[in-house]
Amino acid sequence: MSDPNGSPSPPATSSVFTTGTRIRVHESPAGAMTESTPDQPVSVASASAGVSDGEDADRAYESVITTRDLSVFYGSYQAVREVDMNFGKNRITAMIGPSGCGKSTVLRCFNRMNDLIAGARVEGTITYHGQDVYAPDVDTIEVRRRVGMVFQKPNPFPKSIYDNVAYGPRVNGWKVQSMDDVVEEALTRAALWDEVKDKLKESALALSGGQQQRLCIARCIAVQPDVILMDEPCASLDPIATSKIEDLMRELADDYTIIIVTHNMQQAARVSDRTAFFTADVDDDGVRHGRLVEMDWTKKIFTNPSDPRTEGYISGRFG
């Protein structure tokens, strides 16, 4: 549990999840699926269709975050190589792939959380509404306020529920008319208000795992971000809590751009509009590194991927 600093390896992702994914496939939380996509037939391959029919007609695609030739280094180790992606406004983009392929590493570049890791370095560009996120004059505080993040393990502060949600507005020095309203709105948006409205002053640590994660989402949206990054937000949750978070994501997509890293392919299929598939490659020198294989509409990725590696992963032939 010591510090992740100085470790040259990409963020650890548990290998358990390959198994977890398979289990979920068999369990097939149909309830969750019908809830989140009520009009859609529940089948793995077409579950994504409820979200958007690919190159959808009703909304123009506007890119919020774009990466060009993005490479991430830990010291001299190049963890992720030459990634070109873009993330659409009010879309949910899922990043999937086997452990150690650099999904989380890339995700944490978007709000510069990788700055906290000693030796982490970024090459190439990441733009947010056209502005370079890594430009020298960029205020990382402002980046992180606009690009919020929800972590793999729910990490509520050891404070009351109320103080958890109010923390963001407070540290950002907002002069709000009524903090109570801010808290209520954020908790309502995170579908947690009804469960906690009578115990706002109680410790957030007393909540269940799923509630804690929704609290973390509420805490995140209380600072009114533009983009929400989710790093395997359901990895430590049971299927019921997971389905609640997934429903929530679909609702939040009306107002926010969501980027989610997940090991659970079914989850990517259920919630996302677009999917990026990463893989861990070994180059000629035997160095393992992450690469983007392809990025496309989720429906296409799951029904008709262009790359055989994607198909192999999705159909469970490897990973």
Binding site: M1, M113, L116, I141, F151, K153, Y167, V171
Partner: peptide, 25 residues
């Protein structure tokens, strides 16, 4: 050192400064 890194990360990710994170968390 015993304060978990996840608390620091959570605070920083909300736009808190380094000192705010130390002082408040």
């Amino acid at each position: 050192r015993a304060v978990p890194q996840s608390i620091r990360a959570g605070s920083l990710a909300l736009g808190a400064t380094h000192w705010q994170t130390i002082y408040r968390q």
